[in-house]
Design a protein around this nucleic acid. Sequence first.
DNA 1: AACTCGGGGGA
DNA 2: TCCCCAGAGTT
Length: 405
Amino acid sequence: MQDSKELWQSKLFFSTELLQWYERSKRDLPWRRHRDPYYIWISEIMLQQTRVDTVIPYFQRFIERFPTIQDLAEAPEEDVLKCWEGLGYYSRARNLQAAARQVVERHGGAVPDNKAEVAALKGVGPYTTGAIMSIAFNRPEPAVDGNVMRVLSRYFLIEEDIMKTATRTLMEELATELIPEGRASDFNQALMELGALVCTPKSPQCLICPVMARCAGRLEGAEERLPVKSKAKPPRPEYRLVALVEGDGENAGRVLVRRRPDTGLLARMWELPHIPADAAPGEGAGLPDGPAMDRLTAALVEAGPGVMARPVGPFLNAEHTFSHIHWNLRVFRFSAENAPAAKGGGAVLAAVAESAAAYDAGSGAASTSAAEPLVEYRWITREDMDSLAFPNVFLRILNRHFEEA
DNA sequence: AACTCGGGGGA
DNA sequence: TCCCCAGAGTT
């Protein structure tokens, strides 16, 4: 029998010591200052794949801008995205707002104290369901994130690959057993706090760990190699040519940007126009980038907004790594000449319908108007950046440009 | 089960 | 600079 008396004692020891440690060691975090389920929810979504120190300023700004679920539900999506700018995984923000609307419509604007209903909210998966139910409502549900799997795999010497679904299920069962009666909120937070502060991925601080005495991983000397985790694939490289086009005439001092499509990578975020490049940048030092500039020039006219632009020269190179893609960006400066339809600041310049034909041919399911723009172009000033959401890589390029200008 | 989806921090 | 971190949705 696996579940010997010794194992039972180890579990009791773990829960008891951990809870006591948490009482004296817990950090004073903004979302721990109240029990509002809305704030717990926001913080848990932001904390997915994101460190506490990064989240804090975003959380403060977010609840200031959207103090209630109602406020969030009624806000323009642009505002929500702007508030999320720089945090990454922007579908979290879009799903969060969609879920806020769900809560307003189905639950009268209050987060439901019901597991199935919480789990049904957009962007709320198994972990966040458990986190909300336990932290906000003190329900005995497991909240198994990376921290928890690391702590449990070490303490109980679990060698299963934590990337596998079956392992997470096992961890959830174990974590549920460990919750002391009536203490789900504190215990689950304690578990994650230990993973964040003591039982860290590298160089865990075993000597100050409250449960070191019975940690099977530590006693085996295995704490550094746990948890067992299969490696992720390296990101595939992608090479893009980017145009930084400065306007002329009425658009003097403005830069041409576009909004990304509704789905996929960086959906609905703004960016500089760019096109794919075949291969790595020619490393020939000092060679003019004539061919690349020519292709960009043509793209701005043909596929893009019909902008006639004169190449000025290379501006800078930039790199950006996503989980699965590594972007190599070569940014070139252009000067617009006689930009068409330049009717003044911020006007929509043109729409690209490059894939409209293929779409229509495919299904004929033209649910939206045929004139619906797939990509929207605008001439923007630095001030316009205060209301448009850009991914960090383009934020850096644009800031550099406006600093020099 | 495999793939998609950002960005930051530490060695 | 390189390496590591990892929840939810989609297919």
